[in-house]
């Protein structure tokens, strides 16, 4: 189950290097564990309106003008590049600190397959 769900999600993320996501994948002992992590993550206690609003905007993007679409696309590119850049530049210690226990297993594991 993990293989199917996670790899499908991972395909979508191919252009985005998100170590946290990979760390969660690698840290999972088995497919069920990973799925349970995902399934229990929908009780939002924090405010994620930025993500939600951006998603709403992208849903209507085709109805907007070419100029506005270009601007959004440009910022999307910046978003993904910044994310990648930040993750590449981040000192190893910071990653270790942030990921805690997950980090050790992440380092011991090979990255998940992208096929």
């Amino acid at each position: 189950m993990l293989g199917v769900e996670a790899r499908e999600a991972n395909k979508d993320l191919n252009a985005v290097v998100v170590p946290g996501f990979y760390a969660a994948l690698c840290a999972a002992e088995n497919p069920e564990e990973f799925l349970s992590i995902i399934e229990t993550s929908n009780n939002d206690t924090m405010d994620y309106t930025g993500s939600k609003n951006l998603l709403r905007l992208l849903v209507i993007i085709n109805k907007l003008s070419p100029d506005l679409r270009d601007a959004i696309n440009e910022k999307a590119t910046g978003f993904l590049e910044k994310r990648v850049q930040q993750d590449r530049l981040e000192p190893d210690n910071n990653i270790k600190q942030r990921y805690g226990g997950l980090y050790r297993r992440y380092r011991q594991s090979s990255p998940p397959s992208r096929d």
């Binding site: 999600a9 979508d12 993320l13 252009a15 985005v16 998100v18 946290g20 996501f21 760390a23 969660a24 992590i37 995902i38 229990t40 993550s41 929908n42 939002d44 924090m46 405010d47 994620y48 309106t49 930025g50 993500s51 951006l54 998603l55 992208l58 849903v59 993007i61 679409r69 959004i72 696309n73 999307a76 590119t77 978003f79 993904l80 910044k82 994310r83 942030r98």
Partner: peptide, 27 residues
Amino acid sequence: DTDNLLHLLVIENKLSLDFLRGAINKY
């Protein structure tokens, strides 16, 4: 990139790590 971002946001609420979701939300 827009499409990739859209995919990322679609699965955003399924990502279990708060700091990751927080980073996406911030951007």
